[in-house]
Design a protein around this nucleic acid. Structure first.
Lengths: 207, 207
DNA sequence: GTCTATATGGCGATAGAC
DNA sequence: GTCTATCGCCATATAGAC
Protein backbone atom coordinates (compact mmCIF):
# COMPACT_ATOMS: atom_id res chain seq x y z
CA UNK A 1 0.00 0.00 0.00
CA UNK A 2 1.15 3.49 -0.80
CA UNK A 3 1.22 4.42 2.87
CA UNK A 4 3.46 1.62 4.03
CA UNK A 5 6.71 3.51 3.59
CA UNK A 6 5.51 6.76 5.05
CA UNK A 7 5.87 7.74 8.68
CA UNK A 8 2.80 7.68 10.88
CA UNK A 9 2.89 11.48 10.96
CA UNK A 10 1.74 11.46 7.35
CA UNK A 11 -1.77 10.58 8.47
CA UNK A 12 -4.13 13.49 8.53
CA UNK A 13 -5.70 14.33 11.86
CA UNK A 14 -9.01 12.97 10.66
CA UNK A 15 -7.39 9.67 9.74
CA UNK A 16 -5.64 9.48 13.09
CA UNK A 17 -8.95 10.02 14.83
CA UNK A 18 -10.68 7.33 12.80
CA UNK A 19 -7.90 4.83 13.46
CA UNK A 20 -8.02 5.54 17.18
CA UNK A 21 -11.81 5.46 17.32
CA UNK A 22 -11.79 2.14 15.50
CA UNK A 23 -9.54 0.57 18.11
CA UNK A 24 -11.49 1.88 21.07
CA UNK A 25 -15.00 1.27 19.74
CA UNK A 26 -14.09 -2.25 18.61
CA UNK A 27 -12.81 -3.10 22.07
CA UNK A 28 -15.35 -1.29 24.24
CA UNK A 29 -18.50 -0.86 22.16
CA UNK A 30 -20.43 2.38 21.88
CA UNK A 31 -21.41 2.77 25.53
CA UNK A 32 -18.10 1.59 26.91
CA UNK A 33 -15.90 3.82 24.75
CA UNK A 34 -14.72 7.17 26.13
CA UNK A 35 -13.96 10.20 24.00
CA UNK A 36 -10.94 10.86 26.22
CA UNK A 37 -9.55 7.41 25.50
CA UNK A 38 -9.98 7.94 21.78
CA UNK A 39 -8.24 11.30 22.01
CA UNK A 40 -5.33 9.76 23.93
CA UNK A 41 -5.04 6.91 21.47
CA UNK A 42 -4.93 9.44 18.62
CA UNK A 43 -2.40 11.59 20.47
CA UNK A 44 -4.60 14.67 20.28
CA UNK A 45 -7.02 16.66 22.34
CA UNK A 46 -10.56 15.77 23.23
CA UNK A 47 -11.97 19.01 21.86
CA UNK A 48 -10.53 18.18 18.48
CA UNK A 49 -12.69 15.09 18.23
CA UNK A 50 -15.75 17.29 18.44
CA UNK A 51 -14.27 19.75 16.00
CA UNK A 52 -14.05 16.98 13.40
CA UNK A 53 -17.08 14.86 14.21
CA UNK A 54 -19.28 17.05 16.44
CA UNK A 55 -20.75 14.12 18.40
CA UNK A 56 -19.75 10.71 19.66
CA UNK A 57 -22.54 9.21 17.63
CA UNK A 58 -21.26 10.67 14.35
CA UNK A 59 -17.83 9.27 15.05
CA UNK A 60 -19.28 5.89 15.92
CA UNK A 61 -21.32 5.76 12.73
CA UNK A 62 -18.24 6.41 10.64
CA UNK A 63 -16.38 3.58 12.39
CA UNK A 64 -19.30 1.21 12.21
CA UNK A 65 -19.86 1.76 8.51
CA UNK A 66 -16.20 1.15 7.79
CA UNK A 67 -16.24 -2.11 9.76
CA UNK A 68 -19.33 -3.23 7.99
CA UNK A 69 -17.96 -2.40 4.57
CA UNK A 70 -14.71 -4.23 5.34
CA UNK A 71 -16.29 -7.42 6.54
CA UNK A 72 -18.62 -7.83 3.58
CA UNK A 73 -16.45 -6.47 0.79
CA UNK A 74 -14.00 -9.31 1.25
CA UNK A 75 -16.69 -11.90 0.64
CA UNK A 76 -17.64 -10.50 -2.75
CA UNK A 77 -14.33 -11.01 -4.47
CA UNK A 78 -14.33 -14.77 -3.95
CA UNK A 79 -18.03 -15.39 -4.40
CA UNK A 80 -17.83 -13.76 -7.81
CA UNK A 81 -14.78 -15.71 -8.96
CA UNK A 82 -15.26 -18.22 -11.74
CA UNK A 83 -14.23 -21.61 -10.33
CA UNK A 84 -16.09 -24.82 -9.36
CA UNK A 85 -18.16 -24.75 -6.18
CA UNK A 86 -15.86 -26.85 -4.06
CA UNK A 87 -12.86 -24.73 -4.86
CA UNK A 88 -14.82 -21.54 -4.45
CA UNK A 89 -15.91 -22.68 -1.03
CA UNK A 90 -12.33 -23.48 -0.11
CA UNK A 91 -11.15 -20.04 -1.21
CA UNK A 92 -14.06 -18.29 0.39
CA UNK A 93 -13.59 -19.88 3.78
CA UNK A 94 -9.84 -19.62 3.72
CA UNK A 95 -9.72 -15.97 2.78
CA UNK A 96 -12.60 -15.03 5.00
CA UNK A 97 -11.16 -16.65 8.08
CA UNK A 98 -7.80 -15.03 7.33
CA UNK A 99 -9.54 -11.70 7.19
CA UNK A 100 -11.35 -12.40 10.45
CA UNK A 101 -8.10 -13.35 12.13
CA UNK A 102 -6.58 -10.00 11.20
CA UNK A 103 -9.74 -8.12 12.16
CA UNK A 104 -10.99 -10.21 15.01
CA UNK A 105 -12.76 -7.35 16.77
CA UNK A 106 -15.09 -6.56 13.90
CA UNK A 107 -17.66 -9.38 14.06
CA UNK A 108 -18.05 -9.16 17.83
CA UNK A 109 -18.31 -5.41 17.58
CA UNK A 110 -21.01 -5.58 14.92
CA UNK A 111 -23.00 -8.28 16.68
CA UNK A 112 -22.77 -6.57 20.05
CA UNK A 113 -24.11 -3.33 18.65
CA UNK A 114 -26.69 -5.20 16.60
CA UNK A 115 -27.86 -6.76 19.82
CA UNK A 116 -28.04 -3.55 21.82
CA UNK A 117 -29.51 -1.24 19.23
CA UNK A 118 -30.84 -3.20 16.25
CA UNK A 119 -32.99 -0.46 14.69
CA UNK A 120 -30.19 2.06 14.55
CA UNK A 121 -27.65 -0.43 13.24
CA UNK A 122 -29.97 -1.65 10.52
CA UNK A 123 -30.31 1.97 9.45
CA UNK A 124 -26.55 2.11 9.06
CA UNK A 125 -26.65 -1.12 7.04
CA UNK A 126 -28.95 0.46 4.54
CA UNK A 127 -26.70 3.45 4.02
CA UNK A 128 -23.74 1.29 3.00
CA UNK A 129 -23.20 0.37 -0.65
CA UNK A 130 -21.90 -3.14 0.10
CA UNK A 131 -25.07 -5.06 0.73
CA UNK A 132 -25.14 -8.54 2.22
CA UNK A 133 -28.39 -9.11 0.33
CA UNK A 134 -26.54 -8.66 -2.94
CA UNK A 135 -23.86 -11.04 -1.73
CA UNK A 136 -26.51 -13.62 -1.06
CA UNK A 137 -27.92 -13.27 -4.59
CA UNK A 138 -24.49 -13.94 -6.06
CA UNK A 139 -24.01 -17.03 -3.98
CA UNK A 140 -27.43 -18.32 -4.93
CA UNK A 141 -26.53 -18.17 -8.60
CA UNK A 142 -23.25 -19.98 -8.13
CA UNK A 143 -24.84 -22.81 -6.15
CA UNK A 144 -27.98 -23.38 -8.13
CA UNK A 145 -26.48 -25.11 -11.15
CA UNK A 146 -24.57 -27.70 -9.10
CA UNK A 147 -25.96 -31.16 -8.42
CA UNK A 148 -26.47 -31.15 -4.67
CA UNK A 149 -28.67 -32.44 -1.92
CA UNK A 150 -31.86 -30.43 -1.92
CA UNK A 151 -30.28 -27.48 -0.18
CA UNK A 152 -31.96 -24.28 0.82
CA UNK A 153 -29.37 -21.76 -0.26
CA UNK A 154 -30.36 -19.43 2.54
CA UNK A 155 -29.64 -22.16 5.07
CA UNK A 156 -26.32 -22.86 3.42
CA UNK A 157 -25.42 -19.18 3.41
CA UNK A 158 -26.19 -18.83 7.11
CA UNK A 159 -24.37 -22.06 7.91
CA UNK A 160 -21.19 -20.88 6.25
CA UNK A 161 -21.29 -17.53 8.02
CA UNK A 162 -22.04 -19.23 11.34
CA UNK A 163 -19.16 -21.67 11.05
CA UNK A 164 -16.67 -18.94 10.09
CA UNK A 165 -17.74 -16.16 12.41
CA UNK A 166 -18.87 -17.80 15.63
CA UNK A 167 -15.51 -19.28 16.67
CA UNK A 168 -13.93 -15.86 16.29
CA UNK A 169 -16.40 -14.04 18.51
CA UNK A 170 -16.49 -16.87 21.03
CA UNK A 171 -12.70 -17.02 21.19
CA UNK A 172 -12.25 -16.31 24.90
CA UNK A 173 -14.87 -18.90 25.75
CA UNK A 174 -13.34 -21.51 23.47
CA UNK A 175 -9.88 -20.90 24.88
CA UNK A 176 -11.29 -21.37 28.34
CA UNK A 177 -13.24 -24.54 27.54
CA UNK A 178 -10.38 -26.31 25.76
CA UNK A 179 -7.66 -24.67 27.83
CA UNK A 180 -6.02 -23.31 24.70
CA UNK A 181 -3.07 -20.96 24.82
CA UNK A 182 -3.09 -18.18 22.21
CA UNK A 183 -0.88 -20.30 19.95
CA UNK A 184 -3.08 -23.36 20.33
CA UNK A 185 -6.13 -21.33 19.46
CA UNK A 186 -4.44 -20.06 16.30
CA UNK A 187 -3.57 -23.64 15.33
CA UNK A 188 -7.16 -24.65 15.96
CA UNK A 189 -8.32 -21.97 13.53
CA UNK A 190 -5.66 -22.94 10.98
CA UNK A 191 -6.98 -26.49 11.04
CA UNK A 192 -10.51 -25.19 10.62
CA UNK A 193 -9.57 -23.44 7.42
CA UNK A 194 -8.84 -26.82 5.89
CA UNK A 195 -11.56 -28.86 7.52
CA UNK A 196 -14.54 -26.55 7.21
CA UNK A 197 -14.83 -26.84 3.42
CA UNK A 198 -14.70 -30.63 3.73
CA UNK A 199 -17.31 -30.56 6.47
CA UNK A 200 -19.62 -28.39 4.41
CA UNK A 201 -19.14 -30.23 1.11
CA UNK A 202 -19.84 -33.54 2.83
CA UNK A 203 -22.99 -32.07 4.23
CA UNK A 204 -24.40 -30.93 0.90
CA UNK A 205 -22.96 -33.31 -1.69
CA UNK A 206 -25.23 -35.91 -3.25
CA UNK A 207 -24.23 -39.44 -2.20
CA UNK B 1 -44.56 -23.92 37.98
CA UNK B 2 -45.72 -23.13 41.50
CA UNK B 3 -45.75 -19.42 40.80
CA UNK B 4 -47.95 -19.50 37.75
CA UNK B 5 -51.19 -19.01 39.60
CA UNK B 6 -49.94 -16.36 41.95
CA UNK B 7 -50.15 -12.66 41.29
CA UNK B 8 -46.99 -10.78 40.39
CA UNK B 9 -47.08 -9.19 43.81
CA UNK B 10 -46.05 -12.52 45.29
CA UNK B 11 -42.51 -11.98 44.06
CA UNK B 12 -40.17 -10.74 46.72
CA UNK B 13 -38.53 -7.40 46.06
CA UNK B 14 -35.24 -9.11 45.41
CA UNK B 15 -36.85 -11.32 42.78
CA UNK B 16 -38.51 -8.33 41.15
CA UNK B 17 -35.16 -6.58 40.95
CA UNK B 18 -33.47 -9.59 39.43
CA UNK B 19 -36.21 -9.99 36.82
CA UNK B 20 -36.02 -6.32 35.89
CA UNK B 21 -32.21 -6.31 35.83
CA UNK B 22 -32.25 -9.36 33.59
CA UNK B 23 -34.44 -7.61 31.03
CA UNK B 24 -32.44 -4.42 31.01
CA UNK B 25 -28.96 -5.94 31.07
CA UNK B 26 -29.86 -8.43 28.33
CA UNK B 27 -31.07 -5.62 26.09
CA UNK B 28 -28.49 -2.95 26.86
CA UNK B 29 -25.41 -4.70 28.17
CA UNK B 30 -23.48 -3.62 31.25
CA UNK B 31 -22.42 -0.17 30.07
CA UNK B 32 -25.71 0.63 28.38
CA UNK B 33 -27.95 -0.36 31.28
CA UNK B 34 -29.11 2.34 33.73
CA UNK B 35 -29.93 1.70 37.36
CA UNK B 36 -32.88 4.07 36.96
CA UNK B 37 -34.27 1.99 34.11
CA UNK B 38 -33.95 -1.18 36.15
CA UNK B 39 -35.71 0.46 39.07
CA UNK B 40 -38.56 1.64 36.82
CA UNK B 41 -38.87 -1.79 35.27
CA UNK B 42 -39.09 -3.32 38.75
CA UNK B 43 -41.59 -0.70 39.87
CA UNK B 44 -39.43 0.39 42.78
CA UNK B 45 -36.97 3.06 43.75
CA UNK B 46 -33.37 3.42 42.64
CA UNK B 47 -32.09 3.55 46.20
CA UNK B 48 -33.57 0.15 46.83
CA UNK B 49 -31.40 -1.43 44.19
CA UNK B 50 -28.37 -0.33 46.13
CA UNK B 51 -29.91 -1.49 49.35
CA UNK B 52 -30.17 -5.01 47.96
CA UNK B 53 -27.09 -5.26 45.74
CA UNK B 54 -24.89 -2.34 46.82
CA UNK B 55 -23.35 -1.84 43.36
CA UNK B 56 -24.29 -2.11 39.72
CA UNK B 57 -21.51 -4.63 39.26
CA UNK B 58 -22.88 -6.98 41.94
CA UNK B 59 -26.28 -6.87 40.31
CA UNK B 60 -24.78 -7.53 36.90
CA UNK B 61 -22.80 -10.50 38.16
CA UNK B 62 -25.93 -12.09 39.57
CA UNK B 63 -27.73 -11.68 36.25
CA UNK B 64 -24.79 -12.86 34.20
CA UNK B 65 -24.27 -15.99 36.26
CA UNK B 66 -27.94 -16.87 35.97
CA UNK B 67 -27.86 -16.46 32.18
CA UNK B 68 -24.76 -18.55 31.94
CA UNK B 69 -26.18 -21.30 34.10
CA UNK B 70 -29.40 -21.35 32.10
CA UNK B 71 -27.80 -21.63 28.70
CA UNK B 72 -25.48 -24.48 29.58
CA UNK B 73 -27.65 -26.45 31.96
CA UNK B 74 -30.07 -27.23 29.16
CA UNK B 75 -27.37 -28.85 27.09
CA UNK B 76 -26.41 -31.35 29.76
CA UNK B 77 -29.71 -33.14 30.02
CA UNK B 78 -29.71 -34.23 26.39
CA UNK B 79 -26.00 -34.90 26.02
CA UNK B 80 -26.19 -37.30 28.92
CA UNK B 81 -29.25 -39.15 27.63
CA UNK B 82 -28.78 -42.75 26.50
CA UNK B 83 -29.80 -42.86 22.81
CA UNK B 84 -27.94 -43.32 19.49
CA UNK B 85 -25.86 -40.40 18.24
CA UNK B 86 -28.17 -39.34 15.45
CA UNK B 87 -31.16 -39.17 17.72
CA UNK B 88 -29.21 -37.48 20.44
CA UNK B 89 -28.12 -34.84 17.97
CA UNK B 90 -31.68 -34.34 16.87
CA UNK B 91 -32.87 -33.91 20.45
CA UNK B 92 -29.96 -31.71 21.36
CA UNK B 93 -30.43 -29.30 18.50
CA UNK B 94 -34.18 -29.25 18.78
CA UNK B 95 -34.29 -28.58 22.49
CA UNK B 96 -31.41 -26.17 22.39
CA UNK B 97 -32.86 -24.04 19.64
CA UNK B 98 -36.22 -24.05 21.43
CA UNK B 99 -34.49 -22.79 24.51
CA UNK B 100 -32.67 -20.12 22.51
CA UNK B 101 -35.92 -18.99 20.95
CA UNK B 102 -37.43 -18.44 24.36
CA UNK B 103 -34.28 -16.78 25.69
CA UNK B 104 -33.01 -15.07 22.60
CA UNK B 105 -31.24 -12.28 24.47
CA UNK B 106 -28.93 -14.56 26.40
CA UNK B 107 -26.35 -15.60 23.78
CA UNK B 108 -25.94 -12.10 22.41
CA UNK B 109 -25.68 -10.76 25.92
CA UNK B 110 -23.00 -13.25 26.90
CA UNK B 111 -20.99 -12.80 23.72
CA UNK B 112 -21.20 -9.02 23.86
CA UNK B 113 -19.87 -8.96 27.41
CA UNK B 114 -17.30 -11.62 26.59
CA UNK B 115 -16.11 -9.37 23.82
CA UNK B 116 -15.92 -6.20 25.85
CA UNK B 117 -14.49 -7.55 29.06
CA UNK B 118 -13.17 -11.09 28.56
CA UNK B 119 -11.04 -11.36 31.71
CA UNK B 120 -13.86 -10.43 34.05
CA UNK B 121 -16.39 -12.64 32.31
CA UNK B 122 -14.08 -15.64 32.34
CA UNK B 123 -13.76 -15.13 36.08
CA UNK B 124 -17.54 -15.39 36.35
CA UNK B 125 -17.45 -18.57 34.25
CA UNK B 126 -15.15 -20.19 36.75
CA UNK B 127 -17.41 -19.41 39.67
CA UNK B 128 -20.37 -21.21 38.12
CA UNK B 129 -20.92 -24.94 38.78
CA UNK B 130 -22.19 -25.70 35.26
CA UNK B 131 -18.99 -25.90 33.27
CA UNK B 132 -18.92 -26.02 29.48
CA UNK B 133 -15.67 -27.96 29.75
CA UNK B 134 -17.51 -30.74 31.50
CA UNK B 135 -20.18 -30.63 28.83
CA UNK B 136 -17.53 -31.11 26.21
CA UNK B 137 -16.12 -34.16 28.00
CA UNK B 138 -19.55 -35.78 28.03
CA UNK B 139 -20.03 -35.20 24.36
CA UNK B 140 -16.61 -36.59 23.56
CA UNK B 141 -17.50 -39.86 25.25
CA UNK B 142 -20.79 -40.18 23.40
CA UNK B 143 -19.20 -39.58 20.00
CA UNK B 144 -16.04 -41.61 20.31
CA UNK B 145 -17.55 -45.08 19.98
CA UNK B 146 -19.46 -44.29 16.77
CA UNK B 147 -18.08 -45.15 13.35
CA UNK B 148 -17.54 -41.73 11.78
CA UNK B 149 -15.35 -39.76 9.46
CA UNK B 150 -12.15 -38.93 11.33
CA UNK B 151 -13.73 -36.09 13.26
CA UNK B 152 -12.06 -33.84 15.75
CA UNK B 153 -14.68 -33.76 18.48
CA UNK B 154 -13.67 -30.25 19.43
CA UNK B 155 -14.38 -29.08 15.89
CA UNK B 156 -17.71 -30.88 15.95
CA UNK B 157 -18.61 -29.37 19.29
CA UNK B 158 -17.85 -25.85 18.07
CA UNK B 159 -19.67 -26.47 14.79
CA UNK B 160 -22.84 -27.49 16.57
CA UNK B 161 -22.74 -24.48 18.87
CA UNK B 162 -21.99 -22.17 15.92
CA UNK B 163 -24.88 -23.45 13.85
CA UNK B 164 -27.36 -23.18 16.72
CA UNK B 165 -26.29 -19.91 18.28
CA UNK B 166 -25.16 -17.66 15.44
CA UNK B 167 -28.51 -17.35 13.67
CA UNK B 168 -30.11 -16.27 16.94
CA UNK B 169 -27.65 -13.50 17.68
CA UNK B 170 -27.54 -12.38 14.05
CA UNK B 171 -31.32 -12.32 13.84
CA UNK B 172 -31.79 -8.64 12.94
CA UNK B 173 -29.15 -8.94 10.23
CA UNK B 174 -30.69 -12.11 8.81
CA UNK B 175 -34.15 -10.58 8.78
CA UNK B 176 -32.75 -7.62 6.92
CA UNK B 177 -30.80 -9.67 4.36
CA UNK B 178 -33.64 -12.02 3.50
CA UNK B 179 -36.37 -9.47 4.13
CA UNK B 180 -38.01 -11.76 6.67
CA UNK B 181 -40.96 -10.65 8.76
CA UNK B 182 -40.93 -11.86 12.36
CA UNK B 183 -43.14 -14.80 11.39
CA UNK B 184 -40.95 -15.74 8.45
CA UNK B 185 -37.90 -15.68 10.64
CA UNK B 186 -39.57 -18.01 13.10
CA UNK B 187 -40.46 -20.38 10.27
CA UNK B 188 -36.87 -20.24 9.09
CA UNK B 189 -35.70 -21.33 12.53
CA UNK B 190 -38.35 -24.04 12.72
CA UNK B 191 -37.04 -25.48 9.48
CA UNK B 192 -33.51 -25.31 10.80
CA UNK B 193 -34.45 -27.49 13.75
CA UNK B 194 -35.17 -30.29 11.32
CA UNK B 195 -32.46 -29.67 8.78
CA UNK B 196 -29.47 -28.98 10.99
CA UNK B 197 -29.19 -32.55 12.33
CA UNK B 198 -29.31 -33.86 8.74
CA UNK B 199 -26.71 -31.33 7.66
CA UNK B 200 -24.40 -32.29 10.50
CA UNK B 201 -24.88 -36.06 10.21
CA UNK B 202 -24.19 -35.88 6.48
CA UNK B 203 -21.01 -34.00 7.23
CA UNK B 204 -19.63 -36.55 9.65
CA UNK B 205 -21.07 -39.90 8.57
CA UNK B 206 -18.78 -42.41 6.88
CA UNK B 207 -19.74 -42.92 3.22
C1' DG C 1 -6.72 23.68 13.35
C1' DT C 2 -5.39 22.94 17.90
C1' DC C 3 -5.27 23.94 22.53
C1' DT C 4 -7.07 25.05 27.80
C1' DA C 5 -10.80 25.86 30.51
C1' DT C 6 -15.46 25.39 31.57
C1' DA C 7 -20.36 24.50 31.12
C1' DT C 8 -24.00 21.12 31.44
C1' DG C 9 -26.14 17.07 32.36
C1' DG C 10 -26.50 12.40 33.85
C1' DC C 11 -25.30 8.50 36.54
C1' DG C 12 -23.94 5.62 40.53
C1' DA C 13 -24.08 5.87 45.14
C1' DT C 14 -25.26 7.59 49.97
C1' DA C 15 -27.76 10.10 53.94
C1' DG C 16 -31.40 10.21 56.54
C1' DA C 17 -36.55 10.48 57.45
C1' DC C 18 -40.35 7.33 58.00
C1' DG D 1 -37.47 -2.06 53.90
C1' DT D 2 -38.71 1.76 51.33
C1' DC D 3 -38.76 6.37 50.21
C1' DT D 4 -36.94 11.56 48.93
C1' DA D 5 -33.23 14.39 48.43
C1' DT D 6 -28.68 15.13 47.36
C1' DC D 7 -23.68 14.44 46.81
C1' DG D 8 -19.74 13.83 43.89
C1' DC D 9 -17.92 12.39 39.84
C1' DC D 10 -17.22 11.83 35.16
C1' DA D 11 -18.55 12.16 30.25
C1' DT D 12 -20.05 14.79 26.34
C1' DA D 13 -19.93 18.98 24.51
C1' DT D 14 -18.84 24.11 23.95
C1' DA D 15 -16.32 28.82 24.46
C1' DG D 16 -12.75 31.24 23.40
C1' DA D 17 -7.57 32.19 23.22
C1' DC D 18 -3.74 31.32 20.14
Amino acid sequence: MWLNLMAKKALTTEEKILEAAKKVFHRKGYEGARMQEIADEAGINKALLHYYFRTKENLFDAVFKAAFREIFTKLFTTVDSNVPLEEKLKNLINEYICFLQKNSYIPGFILAELNQNPEKIIEVFKSVPVSPSLLFERMKKSVNDEKLEKTDVRELFINILSLCIFPIIARPMIQHIFEFSDEEFDQFIEKRKKELPVFIMNAIRKK
